[in-house]
Simulated scan of single mutants.
Amino acid sequence: MKATKVILVQDVPNLGEEGDVKLVAPGYARNYLIPRGLALLWNRANVALIESRRHQIQKRKEEKRKKAMDLKALLESEPLELEMPAGEKGKLFGSVTAAVIVEALQKKGIQIERKRVEVPGHGIKMVGTYKVPVHIYEDQRATLTVLVKAQGSGSGEAAEEETSEASSEAVSTQAE
């Protein structure tokens, strides 16, 4: 089977970025990339067309790099704190996965794809502080510090006092 050479017109996940020349299966090029306007067949006319747009493409790539650096600084600036149900010895009921981390980041307004988060051992199963690599753009990686706490730890005594006061108030109002 002979591969077909194409020039990407847009970023294509798991294949490449705009302006990249790639070898792909003929059916993939013919049935998916070209009809959807994601790529052009590699020939002299199309190479000249892409070369004329090379400056714009490089400018967009530079903007992506800048956004990636900003995201890296944001991820590394402060630890992500997660409260998870845990037993007395710090073993979690369940585990912290990439999906849990992505969901917590989304609550903070940070959008990252789940597959870009590389949780060590495919899941964190104990309370503690962990370093989680996050692939951002090209070869840039950020190290996200994840602080896993047991749910209700630290303020558990205060919460127990509040509930006992509330229940004693409820009992006294019922008795009257």
Rank of each mutant, 00 (worst) to 15 (best):
K89Q: 11
P35L: 00
L80V: 05
V117S: 04
A175C: 00
I50T: 13
A150H: 09
Q10F: 07
R114A: 04
V21N: 00
K131F: 15
G128N: 05
E160S: 01
A48F: 11
T143D: 14
G154V: 10
M69S: 07
K2Q: 13
R44V: 14
A98R: 00
E76N: 06
T4N: 05
L49N: 06
Q111C: 03
R36F: 11
A158T: 07
Y32L: 04
L41N: 12
I7E: 10
A99G: 02
N46M: 07
S52Y: 03
A73L: 08
G27A: 10
E157I: 02
E83S: 08
E118C: 00
R141F: 15
E76V: 09
L23W: 11
A159W: 09
I136N: 06
W42L: 04
E113P: 02
E88W: 02
T143C: 08
V146M: 06
E83P: 01
S77Q: 13
A104R: 04
K59I: 03
K61M: 01
L33F: 15
R53T: 09
A73F: 07
K125E: 15
A175D: 07
A150R: 14
A45T: 11
A150P: 12
V47H: 07
L75C: 07
I124T: 05
E160Y: 06
V96N: 06
Y137I: 05
I124D: 13
L105I: 10
K66P: 01
L33V: 08
V117N: 08
Y32E: 10
L105K: 02
G152R: 03
T143G: 02
R65W: 15
L49F: 12
V102K: 07
E176Y: 12
L74R: 10
E165Y: 06
A175S: 06
S172P: 04
K2D: 15
I136F: 12
A86S: 08
E78R: 07
E62D: 13
L105P: 13
G128R: 01
P85A: 00
E17M: 02
R65D: 02
W42E: 13
I50Y: 06
G128A: 03
L15S: 05
L38V: 08
E176A: 03
R65G: 05
S168L: 10
G37S: 03
S155L: 12
Q111G: 00
L92A: 02
S172Q: 11
T129R: 05
I136D: 03
L15E: 14
R30E: 15
V100P: 01
K67Y: 14
L49D: 08
S52N: 09
A73P: 07
S155C: 04
L82Q: 08
D20R: 00
G156P: 03
G19D: 04
A86K: 01
K22E: 10
E162K: 02
L40T: 11
E103H: 12
I34M: 05
N31L: 09
D20V: 00
S52F: 02
L105M: 08
A86W: 11
T97M: 00
A159Q: 11
M69C: 01
A150D: 07
G152H: 11
S153M: 12
V134H: 12
L38R: 07
G152Y: 12
G156Q: 11
D20A: 00
A68C: 06
